[in-house]
Design a protein around this nucleic acid. Structure first.
Length: 929
RNA sequence: GCCCGGAUGGCGGAAUUGGUAGACGCGUCAGACUCAAAAUCUGGUUACCGCAAGGUAGUGCAGGUUCGAUUCCUGUUCCGGGCACCA
């Protein structure tokens, strides 16, 4: 009987499905474990070998935990709203729901081939009205909340209204400061519109008129993390700043908690660092400077108040509100010209020409509060309106940008750090002792920061301030294929839809073209938008991250029609114990979902405020591309070492073109000429310049993609080797978190391992060869070592060494000719986490009638692991010399007598005095002479 | 520029706490079986010297701590990832 993986896998996949074996109940008597994959966007492209890597890892872990007695939630779903389906709809007129469904079907079929243990009865789709009803509902909860900075939590907006109407917006309540103060009487006399406008400044989901990242090609705005180097993340289209009314998530209010929460979760240090950088916390001070001959003050933000006597000029962002007010008549023309110039420049140009120094003097002067020095006020685009106060105090000797600016515009430079400044390069040190600094002269900078801060606060002209780089997240998209906002407008005010009217379903549209004035397609449907009597709907839709910010909660209770999930269900399943996915969501999805979780926690809907306890980032599987060189003169291909001009040589690209060749035509680096010639007629009669009879291709590691002809399809590998081999090989490639190029070569080794395992059970001639005889100690020792190693490795996500441990175990059993059921059955149970099909088949062959999936992970028994005697390596001065058999539980004295009686050691030591004998953790004896 | 990772045979990688570096797999070499091939099995495979036993060197590079360092410390080079006018 041969290892017929095709029949086995088909048989068991069918049986498992028929038995609903992966269906999981919200039980409470077993300990729970929640193992989650980042759900995919169902694109039409199909899977390549890189996609299932994380799914296989999480599946192994989920199966392992099940064997360990946990009630494991391991669901899968689809992030099915999004741009590609809509763009496809624009081109073909096909409804996005149709293409999405088709893609999901393909996706599901490919996943099932691999034998995952998902509980499909809990599948969620963000584009399903039963799901997005609750996305809309949560949006309304966020809309109806504000952030209390005293209690550091979200609270219902109604409590803020109560406070306003009883006490105004005085201090003492945790609302943040806004510039217009009002009393309770004033509040009560405000018009509805005035009240709503004020409340909008507190809501955690709010609409505001602001600069957004507008992408003309995509016809929509993008969140900050969706813009990379001034172009869109998706498609690489140019992005410009545009003023529009938009919805936002007030994620900045959660900046502090998002930062602190990182301490409690088990994410990689790199991931935490990325989030910290994105949040960008900095400690500093806001300082008010008087402006000569003006009543208004200039507020700047600095992290280095200690350098206040080194301030040689001020810089405002061109958009700063004071610019118009303070510009002198003499400078007005120059300033206006400069502002026109700034407006004409796109973000992209600004970034490309980052070194270019531009700016303009306003003609106004600020006054140093300590020594009364007059400081010229400039405007320049290197100061950003959106950060701090949009104005800085420039200290050329300590900040390189300020220095370059000062030199470019010939502003005199004050040196306050003595030798630390060399006149060429600014030095941002905190170690220097201050000079030219009035009362700070002679004080070390690091200490001076506190001194200045105290003085500023004492004089009431400044205060300590923490700033964050992170901005509020844009939440509107001018698209069709997303969640409609449950919002309508009346008299210019936004109102929430009644909960009973949810879900607000996407209406059908004739086409998917954008609406007028940069609005989304929904704006074209008059009937839907206009509700009569001046009431109209919001025509934007929510961004992709809306549905993905809470889906992990829905899996706990996916069919609930009364709540997004019952409190009982979310209390039971609680946090995701292990979340597996790529690093690309570091600052997007992971921050948004952390924020939503915190809001829901604050409002009392769930009992935890970090969604993911542990995060595992699987590395990217890169493609290994192969290239051919074709002469540009004639139809001739040159093998890598037959090129007449080397790749780096002059005129190379005039002589040759370098073409991607489909990796399926290449074995290693050798081109399969026959297959290649057959592929296209133009190749059939080409000439080939070979080396040693072969065509050798060039190799490069690139991203895996169809256009580079370097994709490898899992279905083909499964067809050739089976799903179990495929699963184990993907894990065997290397550490799960590491990126690595795909190489199919080694898969044979894993395939051989499974065939070898099979032969422990079946012999070609004799058939069944296992027996129920008692296993020898040697055999049990092999088994129990494997149990411990595989258990440990699986627990800590070290699946590559886990696979190796199986190989070692089977090799050793083969050597021992061990066919004992007593040993083989526990091995199969462990293997079922990695290679479920073959494990299930052999488990049944052994006579079991229940599924191996429901078995228990074996326990390692110490009596087979602990030896009473052990071979110790003995070294002299750290150099390995010999081994010595000694009892395991020996004391230091035993070591000495044993060691000294050893003939080989005696010879080595000769007459030298023994200074020390070191006995190390049962592993080694070292003699120091 | 700043912040994180990483560097180990021909290749992917292992070494869980400072304790026999190179597990496991690929590739390769030799052998067995076979008319032959495939499949399978056995053995070798870090380099150098040696028939062998064995010896010497060896985890990017230069130092240090230690009886002992892939592991800890200092400096340095290269590679990968992230951020990038954030005051």
């Amino acid at each position: 009987m041969e290892y017929d993986y095709r029949a086995i896998e088909k048989k068991w996949q069918g049986a498992w499905k028929a038995d609903d074996i992966y269906k999981v109940e919200n039980e409470t008597f077993k300990p729970k474990c929640y193992v989650l994959d980042m759900f995919p966007y169902p694109s039409g492209a199909g899977l390549h070998v890189g996609h299932p890597l994380g799914y296989i890892a999480s599946d192994i872990y989920a199966r392992y935990k099940r064997l360990k007695g946990f009630n494991v939630l391991h669901p899968m779903g689809y992030d099915s709203f999004g741009l590609p389906a809509e763009q496809y709809a624009l081109e073909t007129g096909q409804h996005p729901a149709v293409t999405t469904q088709k893609n999901i079907d393909t996706f599901r079929q490919q996943l099932e081939n691999i034998g995952f243990s998902f509980d499909w009865s809990r599948e969620v789709r963000t584009s399903d009205p039963h799901y997005y009803k609750w996305t809309q509902w949560i949006f309304l909860q966020i809309f109806n909340s504000w952030y209390d900075h005293q209690q550091k939590k979200a609270r219902p907006i109604s409590e803020l209204i109560d406070n306003f109407s009883s006490q105004g917006n005085g201090i003492g309540f945790g609302q943040k400061e806004i510039d217009n103060k009002f009393t309770a009487e004033a509040w009560n006399s405000f018009s509805e519109k005035e009240k709503q406008d004020i409340l909008m400044r507190f809501r955690l989901a709010y609409s505001a008129y602001g600069e957004v990242n507008w992408c003309e090609a995509l016809g929509t705005v993008l969140a900050n993390d969706e813009v990379i180097n001034g172009v869109s993340e998706r498609g690489g289209h140019p992005v410009v700043k545009k003023k529009m009314r938009q919805w936002y998530m007030r994620i900045t209010d959660y900046a502090e908690r998002l930062l602190l929460g990182l301490e409690q979760v088990d994410f990689s240090e790199a991931m935490k660092e990325m989030q910290r950088n994105w949040i960008g916390r900095s400690e500093g001070a806001e300082i008010d400077f008087e402006i000569a001959d003006h009543s208004k003050k200039l507020k700047v933000y600095t992290t280095r108040p200690d350098t206040i006597f080194g301030v040689d000029f001020m810089v405002l962002a061109p958009e700063h509100e004071l610019v118009d007010h303070i510009t002198s008549d003499h400078q007005r023309k120059a300033v206006e010209e400069y502002l026109d110039y700034v407006k004409s420049r796109s973000d992209r140009e600004r970034m490309a020409e980052i070194k270019q120094i531009t700016g303009c003097f306003t003609g106004a002067y600020a006054v140093n509060p300590f020594d009364g020095k007059k400081i010229p006020i400039w405007i320049a685009e290197y100061v950003l309106a959106g950060y701090g106060t949009g104005a800085i105090m420039a200290v050329p000797c300590g900040d390189q940008r300020d220095l370059l600016f000062a030199k470019h515009f010939d502003i005199s430079i004050t040196n306050i750090i003595g030798d630390h400044y060399d006149g060429n390069e600014a030095n941002p040190t905190k170690e220097a002792v201050l000079s030219n600094s009035d009362f700070l002269t002679g004080v070390k900078m690091a200490g001076a920061i506190g001194v200045v801060n105290d003085k500023l606060e004492e004089l009431g002209i400044g205060k300590r301030k923490v700033n964050y780089k992170m901005r509020d997240a844009g939440f509107s998209r001018q698209r069709y294929w997303g969640e409609p906002f449950p919002i309508f407008y009346k008299n210019g005010m936004a109102f929430p839809l009644d909960e009973a009217d949810l879900p607000l379903e996407l209406p059908h549209v004739e086409n998917y073209k954008p609406g007028p004035d940069g609005q989304g397609p929904l704006a074209n449907i008059n009937d839907w938008v206009n509700l009569g009597e001046g009431v109209s709907r919001e025509t934007n839709t929510m961004p992709g991250y809306a549905g993905s910010s809470w889906y992990f909660l829905r899996y706990a209770d996916p069919d609930n029609s009364k709540e997004f999930a019952s409190r009982q269900a979310t209390d039971y399943w609680n946090q995701v114990d292990v979340y597996v996915g790529g690093t690309e969501h570091a600052v997007g999805h992971l921050l948004y979902s952390r924020m939503w979780t915190k809001v829901l926690y604050d409002l009392g809907y769930i009992g935890f405020d970090e969604p993911f306890k542990k995060l595992v980032n699987q590395g990217m599987i890169q493609g290994s591309s192969r290239f051919l060189y074709r002469s540009k003169k004639d139809n001739a291909f040159y093998s890598l070492n037959k090129l007449e001009i080397g790749e780096t040589g002059e005129g190379f690209s005039d002589h040759y073109s370098k073409l991607h060749v489909d990796v399926s035509y290449v074995d290693g680096v050798t081109l399969d000429l026959n297959a290649f010639k057959k592929a296209r007629a133009e190749y059939a009669d080409a000439t080939f310049h070979l080396e040693d009879g072969n065509y050798i291709c060039a190799v490069e590691v690139e991203k895996m993609s169809k256009s580079k002809y370097n994709t490898v399809n899992p279905n083909e590998l499964i067809e050739k080797y089976g799903a179990d081999t495929f699963r184990m090989y993907e894990m065997f490639l290397g550490p799960i978190e590491q990126s690595k190029p795909w190489d199919t070569k080694g898969i044979e080794g894993v395939f051989r391992f499974l065939k070898k395992l099979w032969r422990l059970f079946f012999d070609e001639n004799k058939g069944k060869i296992w027996t129920d005889e008692k296993a020898s100690n040697a055999e049990l020792k092999v088994l129990h070592r494997a149990i411990r190693k595989i258990g440990d490795d699986t627990e800590r996500f070290s699946f590559n060494t886990g696979v190796s441990a199986f190989m070692v175990c089977v090799n050793e059993l083969t050597e021992l000719k061990c066919h004992k059921e007593e040993v083989l059955e526990p091995l199969l149970i462990m293997l079922s986490a990695y290679a479920p099909h073959i494990a299930e088949e052999l488990y049944h062959q052994l006579g079991n009638t229940t599924s191996v999936i429901k078995a228990s992970f074996p326990k390692a028994d110490n009596q087979y692991l602990v030896e009473t005697e052990k071979e110790y390596p003995v070294s002299i001065n750290g150099k390995m010399r010999t081994t010595l058999t000694m009892p395991l539980n020996m004391t230091q004295g035993d070591v000495e007598s044993q060691v000294l009686s050893n003939e080989i050691v005696k010879k080595w030591i000769e007459d030298k005095p023994v200074k020390k004998i070191i006995y190390v953790k049962g592993k080694m004896v070292n003699i120091v002479v």
